[in-house]
Design a binder for these strands. Structure first.
Lengths: 199, 199
DNA sequence: CAAAATCCTTATCTTTTGTTAACGTTTTCA
DNA sequence: TGAAAACGTTAACAAAAGATAAGGATTTTG
């Protein structure tokens, strides 16, 4: 995919939050950069400060923590979604988790520095504040649902809903990562799948 | 507490995100309103659209869902914290949970309508966008930690950490609500407490 | 292509949690 | 103040999940 196609996908993606006229877009795109990750390459590692927020134009990544030497996958992002170690990016603190490409992945990136410059750019400031607000609000809603699921649902219920609403991720993501995402062990997910098949 | 004292606490609270000069503050405060909740009174109920975001100047509330006829408490907010059914407030959708006062509670409120007016007010727009962005980012970080806790920690570990970092809530909140918050049943929390005492 | 690594399932055993009910204490409120 | 409601603990049993290991299939990779 060439840069023009990536930019098009990106403009489409950001339009969910804010739209630019052609003049603004011209300026805005000067602050963007491009990158790619090969499979298993890390975008973020524990202990560093995350300097970019990204839009994924192709591929998939997983977010994971290491606890007692074990990797625990907490989330995934796919093409046409955003990716960042937000807490580290926003607060400029050391990252506490890892982000790793699960497939060959292509990115459009905004650096923290460039974001600050845009927030001070007279032509872009208001829209960038709004973009920052709306994307943060978007994620709040996602998180709210996710916490609610942990509070109100059993692992089995969470699995059944995931299987209904995002069947495709089982074709795309190793099952033991999905188990972590559901808050259980891979062995337990295997049992749940067997159980729910029989019913 | 009179309105002046509440406003002072509020100004202090919002200063975490954005500061107003006296002229701006003058205008800003015209968009605020005040309210209070008696113990057990609801601020938000399932099925309605939440029209306010609030700053709690006194008291405490709990957020809960009803599942299979049972109340499940997912979160608490206390004085000098913000409170809203954010997802409903932001998206203008029907609320899926309840917010109820646990104590006599006093609030400073911003209605959705007034917030929109401020976002269009030349003197306030940029700061309100920024406020919206920063408070949303603040909550993202909280949620990120909360999800990570569910993914990486056992209920017992979550209890021990809560006991260390927020011991006072055990003096203030009924234990069976805290159990829900930790993702377990009241009976299970009682067992965990016994277990961890003996060790 | 062949060895190594990864992955899912299954089995066994242990630990933890859920469910229900009972009991005593404390709190609420008419 | 006195009855009712709310609350925390405990017990007993059932259900679910964690830990560990083994086995077979698939995928990766030198």
């Amino acid at each position: 995919m060439d840069k023009q196609a990536q930019l098009k996908a990106f403009r489409n993606g950001i339009a969910q939050f804010v739209t630019f006229n052609d003049t603004e877009w011209e300026v805005f795109t000067q602050y963007l950069s491009f990158s790619s990750l090969s499979k298993k390459e890390h975008f973020a590692v524990e202990g560093k400060v995350c300097d970019y927020m990204c839009f994924i134009t192709r591929g998939a990544v997983r977010y994971y923590h290491i606890k007692d030497g074990q990797e625990i996958t907490g989330y995934f992002s796919f093409e046409n979604e955003w990716m960042s170690a937000y807490k580290s990016f926003l607060k400029r603190t050391h990252n506490t988790n890892y982000i790793q490409a699960l497939e060959e992945t292509a990115l459009v990136m905004i650096s923290y520095q460039n974001l600050q410059q845009m927030l001070n750019h007279p032509l872009l400031a208001l829209k960038m504040e709004r973009f920052g607000r709306l994307i943060a609000e978007y994620y709040i809603c996602c998180y709210e649902d996710r916490v609610t699921a942990f509070i109100t649902q059993t692992p089995e219920e969470r699995y059944i809903i995931l299987e209904k609403t995002a069947k495709d991720i089982f074709q795309r993501i190793p099952q033991h990562f999905i188990a972590n995402f559901l808050g259980i062990t891979p062995v337990s997910l295997s049992r749940i799948r067997k159980r729910t098949l029989l019913q």
